[in-house]
Design a binder for these strands. Sequence first.
DNA 1: ACAATATTTAACCAATAAGTTAATTAACTA
DNA 2: TAGTTAATTAACTTATTGGTTAAATATTGT
Lengths: 118, 118
Amino acid sequence: MVTQSVYADPLSVTFSALSHPVRRDMLRQLRTGKVTVKELAEPHEMSAPAITKHLKVLENAKLITRSQDAQWRFSEIHVSPLIEVANWVDEYKILWNERLDRLEVYVEKLTKGDKNTQ
Amino acid sequence: MVTQSVYADPLSVTFSALSHPVRRDMLRQLRTGKVTVKELAEPHEMSAPAITKHLKVLENAKLITRSQDAQWRFSEIHVSPLIEVANWVDEYKILWNERLDRLEVYVEKLTKGDKNTQ
DNA sequence: ACAATATTTAACCAATAAGTTAATTAACTA
DNA sequence: TAGTTAATTAACTTATTGGTTAAATATTGT
């Protein structure tokens, strides 16, 4: 991966942030709404500072925004980088459709001889 | 990112491989078909060994398959990890649709007063 | 004021990523 | 066979990642 420094392009920063299962789990948890650090930490056997670091990576990638209420810090999912990922991968969908098409043609050829037995 | 070792889960390996702009450029080049290492290297100001390394990362992530003809090694794109990415991000589409819906409702409210002037 | 709770910061460490140069391997060509 | 081209391997360097523990900060409740 490319460094997560300020010099990395946004899509690289996004993919890099998504490349850790703990961070993907966190995003999954955030689909239901605002969540505290403690709640995000709960499913993971990991120290609190490690959780803070993962949150910073997500925040730096603009995948979450954060807010504070008393001693609780809430994280909220921010979808626009995910939309960029969807747009990026969309450009490859033509490829797998082409391949499926070729596969269909192939299957058709294979089964042609059996046409009347179906 | 999680280590690209054999212990990392496939989706983490995929996202990690996609987190470098040079590797994404390579995949883009491969959309048109099989390409040699030299052709993949051409657009990038980077040593040959660096290109080899990027190709290994893509191969390890099963984003490409490789073949050989004389002194040329060809890379070919392999779509299934990309399908997994598309499936993963699909689970978040509901979120941005929800947000768009809320936005629409909001816009509707804002413009309601002007209904007869439109 | 004091203890408890929530979270972050600082300092450190080991492993990995991403690049380099130099050397090597492999295949073609004159 | 010697030279050229294509690509990889080896060895090394630097920066980053992802984790730790210990200490600090901030807020609430008694």
